[in-house]
Design a binder for these strands. Structure first.
Length: 155
DNA sequence: GCCAACGTTGGC
DNA sequence: GCCAACGTTGGC
């Protein structure tokens, strides 16, 4: 696989954790309700890899790796009136929100914390270290992705 | 709990 | 189209 792109995808472990993904093997990455994150998701290709990031936990950081195995799927919860992700403005014949399916690759034995990341990278190099960053999906530059993978293998 | 940094909504 | 008010994310 020569030309894959790398991503960072956030999830609060209370909602969905790397352990959940390890157990389920694959999951629909649903509930994205931010246009910028959605648009990034729309540019994902099958075979791309994503760093799994635990947010709103102690400590926040990168905990694992997954692969994108399906793209362009309609997020079913936008039509589920009981769901917190229900969107009354989204129409069945023109869905507003979509999602991808991801597959577990590995869980890192040691996480790379946000603190460590922010000591190595600037907010321009790695958007997740930007103060106040609220994007739940963001691209990661290939050379930084390679650095991270090497670092994660060595610890 | 505080607050920074956005995104969204709605009046005009 | 502008912008104020409000809501959300998420680190600390």
């Amino acid at each position: 696989m020569t030309d894959i792109n790398y991503w960072l995808m956030k999830s609060e472990p209370d909602a969905y954790s790397i352990t959940d993904l390890r157990n389920e093997k694959e999951t629909l990455w649903d509930g994205i309700r931010n246009y910028q994150a959605r648009n990034f998701m729309r540019t994902m290709k099958i075979g791309d890899q994503a760093f799994f990031y635990h947010s709103n936990t102690k400590p926040p950081g990168i905990v694992g790796l997954m692969e994108i195995i399906e793209t362009g799927l309609v997020d079913p919860f936008q039509f589920d009136i009981k769901s917190k992700y229900y969107d009354k403005k989204s129409k069945e014949d023109n869905p507003r929100w979509d999602c991808v399916k991801t597959k577990f690759i590995c869980e890192f034995r040691n996480i790379i914390t946000l603190k460590e990341l922010s000591e190595i990278y600037t907010p321009e190099e790695l958007t997740v270290v930007r103060k106040g960053n609220r994007l739940s999906i963001m691209p990661i530059n290939k050379s930084i992705a390679n650095d991270l993978l090497i670092k994660l293998k060595s610890i």
